[in-house]
Simulated scan of single mutants.
Amino acid sequence: MSERSVFVTGASRGIGLAIARAFAEQGDRVAVGYRGGGPPDGLTGVHCDVTDPASVDAAFTAVEAENGPVSVLVANAGITQDSLALRMTDEEFAAPFETNLAGTFRVARRAAPGMLKGRWGRMVFVSSVMGTLGSPGQANYAASKSGLIGLARSLAREFGRRGITVNTVAPGLVETDMSAAISDRRRDELLAMTPVGRVGTAREVAEVVRFLASEGASYVTGGVIPVSGGMGMGS
């Protein structure tokens, strides 16, 4: 379990960066995927556009050369493109699916052969509580994040007998650059739906992801773990 090869997509900031740092702290060999800008300080970065299969393959090839076959994959890359349903174009509806859902499938498909060969692996997909609750103005985002649950559970059934687990975490209102763009009115609405009465931190999400990637979680697969302060509990 020491010095595993960990690849976190969409990890230049926010939840992804917190996850990457949490794994690095425990001694794993961590690579972070980024599409725009550059890699974060202190971590190995690799350009990875999850909407492009060739970019995904090149990123994994680079990570494998540096750190060895990926044994822990955290698929965090995601976007929003909000609009009310009656105003949403086909292109706006499709965009989050291409990154959030299809992008996750692409990186999982590329990671799987190495995990199958090693008969051990951990995949964790970062969804959202909105994938189970729904959200006005986010039909595309919510549907794409909901789709991650079906994808994870299907892969969990395919890979389970080879020592590979596949789980999903569903963060609620977490303090990130993305959540900072939420209007004060919507933020108050979300806080009112959160029993613990506060915004979460990216580190709190990272701790759950790190557990799911541990040997202690070897009997947890196909799960949807809310990290939401109770928002949407039971959904």
Rank of each mutant, 00 (worst) to 15 (best):
A152K: 08
F23M: 14
T176F: 10
G114V: 10
G68M: 01
G230K: 07
V199L: 07
R153G: 12
G42W: 09
S5R: 02
R4W: 08
E25I: 00
D57E: 06
L190F: 12
L173V: 10
G16V: 02
N140K: 06
K117F: 04
A24L: 05
M123G: 02
I182F: 15
V224R: 03
M115K: 03
D188F: 00
A75K: 07
L17R: 00
L17M: 04
A112F: 11
S128G: 11
R210F: 02
E91W: 07
A94M: 06
L116A: 14
D184K: 14
F23A: 05
L173S: 12
G134T: 04
V169R: 15
E64T: 06
G14P: 00
A180V: 04
F159P: 00
R187V: 06
D49T: 13
Y219E: 05
G234R: 03
R203L: 11
R161D: 07
V50A: 08
A206T: 02
G137H: 09
A24H: 06
R13W: 04
E175R: 05
V205N: 12
A85T: 13
G103Y: 03
A54M: 05
A75E: 06
S218I: 00
S183T: 15
V199Y: 02
G10Y: 08
L116C: 11
L212H: 09
A180D: 15
R21C: 04
N167G: 15
D57N: 10
P226T: 05
P136F: 09
V70C: 14
L86N: 04
A59N: 01
S235R: 13
V166P: 09
A170D: 02
G137N: 12
T104D: 09
G68F: 09
A18S: 08
A77E: 12
G131Q: 05
V220K: 05
R187T: 14
V107K: 07
E98V: 12
T104K: 01
S128C: 12
M231S: 10
M123N: 01
R198A: 06
F125V: 09
V227D: 14
Q138T: 00
L190K: 11
A206E: 01
G114W: 14
G42Y: 12
I182T: 10
